[in-house]
Simulated assay, not measured.
Amino acid sequence: MDPTDIGFIPVGPRRTFEGAVEQIAERVRLGELSAGDRLPSERDLAAAMQISRPTLREAVRVLADAGVLRVRPGSAGGTFVASSYVPIELLRSKSDLRLGEVAGVLEARRLIEPRVAQLAAVNAREDDFAHLARLIEAQKALLDEGDVLAHEDHFLQLDTQFHVRIARATGNSTIVSLMRTLLRRLEIARDLALHEPPTAPWVIDIHERTLAAIRSADHDRIDEVMDEHLAAMERAWERATDRMLVRPIPDFMLPVAARSRDQRSSRTPAR
């Protein structure tokens, strides 16, 4: 596995140990590394992050102690992902976003993510659809356990992975990189401003309808389901903060239903 394929970058001179832990943890949390996957070799991974091999070993040890990685000795060994679930506490940068920036994150999501889903509909392969379906089934399994709140972070992590996989289905590495950044900040936004738990059956339902819309390659249908999906978090943020997102917004960012009404009105002849 080439470490650059899943976005490993230089850690930099400051906080190298914490940065290495965070990068590996984030790749697992975003679903770009799954349980059973083998990490790049120690030499390649340390070179990609531009850190020393002892620093990388210490980061791997911390992640192994947390149950995220497993180190297998021997000629057929290596470092493997032991669990697809990563506790949010391992991502130390989650406090970097200020409350006032959350509105910008939500507006950026509305601008970008529906177009990402539409491009995914054009380029997605069958294994992309299968992976999205598996993520939905994993959420259903948590719901079937009876207490989603006890597994809330895991449930939300699967939600994030669902959206990352849509981005990967576009086949565009620039879009994947943009969506990684946006989704990481969305997780922070949820921590900062949204204090109500997600309604698990609704999340599962909207994911199923999103998958069906992308499979259909019907761009109007994708717009409709993505509008509903995005509006839920926007309304929750507005309720939590007693603030409104910026209005008016450009026509291409309006909800589909409102845009359709406006178009129909413009076609109605004057009497």
Rank of each mutant, 00 (worst) to 15 (best):
R243D: 05
L156E: 04
R72D: 03
E126D: 07
H163I: 07
F8H: 06
V256L: 15
A232F: 04
A257V: 10
M233D: 10
A212L: 12
L182R: 10
R134P: 03
M244Y: 10
A167K: 01
E113P: 00
I249H: 04
E224N: 06
E58M: 10
D2I: 07
S173L: 14
M233K: 08
E137H: 11
V122G: 02
F129M: 03
V164M: 15
I6A: 07
Q139I: 00
T16Y: 03
V68H: 11
V86T: 07
A25Y: 00
G146M: 06
L254T: 12
I222P: 03
R27C: 05
E22S: 04
L30A: 04
V203W: 08
G7L: 11
E26T: 05
H195R: 13
D262M: 15
S216E: 09
G36S: 02
A189H: 02
P54L: 13
I222C: 02
D227T: 09
S52I: 11
E42A: 15
T268K: 11
A20M: 00
D220R: 09
R27N: 02
N123Y: 08
I166A: 06
D128P: 05
M1T: 09
S265E: 15
V246F: 14
Q23G: 00
G36W: 08
E26L: 11
A141F: 02
L90V: 09
L111D: 08
K94H: 10
P73L: 08
V122A: 13
I24Y: 01
R134M: 14
R57V: 12
L142T: 02
E22H: 03
T181A: 14
P87D: 09
L99H: 05
V225D: 00
D159A: 05
I188Y: 06
P114V: 13
A231F: 15
I214D: 03
A231P: 06
A213F: 07
S216L: 10
A121G: 11
